[in-house]
């Protein structure tokens, strides 16, 4: 779910939300760029590209289908660098696919990257444990919490922008409750797989203590 500037621009509060999103995304991106050194750029780009390619894959849910988001996985792998990675992926989505607008890029990045960074701090240690079930739980938690966080921020942005969006905001949030479960299952399996196949190389952002152990 991406916001578009045309949706938010109807009220002063909506314009405020757009500006706030821009400032927040700018700050997060600056922090993320500081955490990333030059040699890591290709690997971060790889994660961005996976995020973009995967968003074009539709997977079945009952009678309908959803597309994967994987912002939780991006967060677990990249930490604060998730901000620039998601900013670039969302820019590509806006220009190449038509998801969201250029002016809503800030609020969309903020809504997706902030929960991704949060799940990094919450689930990072668990995803590095040697226990498979804990790895899966970390991935499941990260995948679903990131989606729920993003859905909450998007719904809140809509709600703040105008009372008439109340129903839309509620609909967006409830739809993402279902998406969160599936996203959790997929990210959980992906983390289990990555921990088994290539334990440390892909996890670019690693807390200091864990880096020594690997």
């Amino acid at each position: 779910m991406h916001l578009h500037e045309a949706v938010l621009s109807g009220s002063p509060q909506g314009i405020g939300v757009l500006c706030l999103g821009g400032v927040g995304a700018l700050a997060g991106t600056a922090l993320g760029l500081r955490a990333m050194d030059h040699e890591q750029v290709p690997r971060v780009a790889l994660v961005s590209a996976v995020f973009f390619v995967v968003s074009l894959i539709h997977i079945p849910v009952g009678v309908t289908s959803i597309h994967l988001t994987l912002s939780g996985l991006v967060g677990l792998l990249l930490g604060w660098t998730a901000f620039p990675a998601l900013l670039i992926a969302l820019l590509l989505q806006a220009v190449l696919v038509g998801h969201g607008g250029l002016l809503a890029l800030g609020i969309n990045t903020l809504a997706m990257a902030l929960p991704a960074v949060a799940v990094y701090y919450i689930f990072q240690r668990m995803s590095h444990s040697g226990n498979r079930s804990l790895n899966f739980l970390a991935g499941f938690g990260a995948g679903s919490a990131a989606i729920l966080g993003s859905a909450f921020l998007i719904s809140a942005a809509l709600w703040v922008s105008g009372e008439s969006f109340e129903l839309v905001a509620k609909a967006v949030f409830s739809f993402h409750l279902a998406v969160a479960v599936i996203e959790g299952l997929v990210v959980g399996s992906a983390i289990v797989f990555l921990r088994q196949v290539c334990p440390e190389r892909l996890f670019l952002a690693t807390p200091q203590g864990l880096q020594d152990r690997s």
């Binding site: 790889l46 994660v47 996976v50 390619v53 995967v54 894959i57 997977i59 994967l68 994987l70 996985l73 991935g139 599936i182 299952l185 997929v186 990210v187 959980g188 399996s189 992906a190 983390i191 289990v192 797989f193 990555l194 196949v197 892909l202």
Partner: peptide
């Protein structure tokens, strides 16, 4: 869903 997870992992 597990297969999709492994697919994403393998892609990475």
């Amino acid at each position: 869903y597990r297969s999709f997870g492994y697919l994403v992992g393998m892609l990475l």
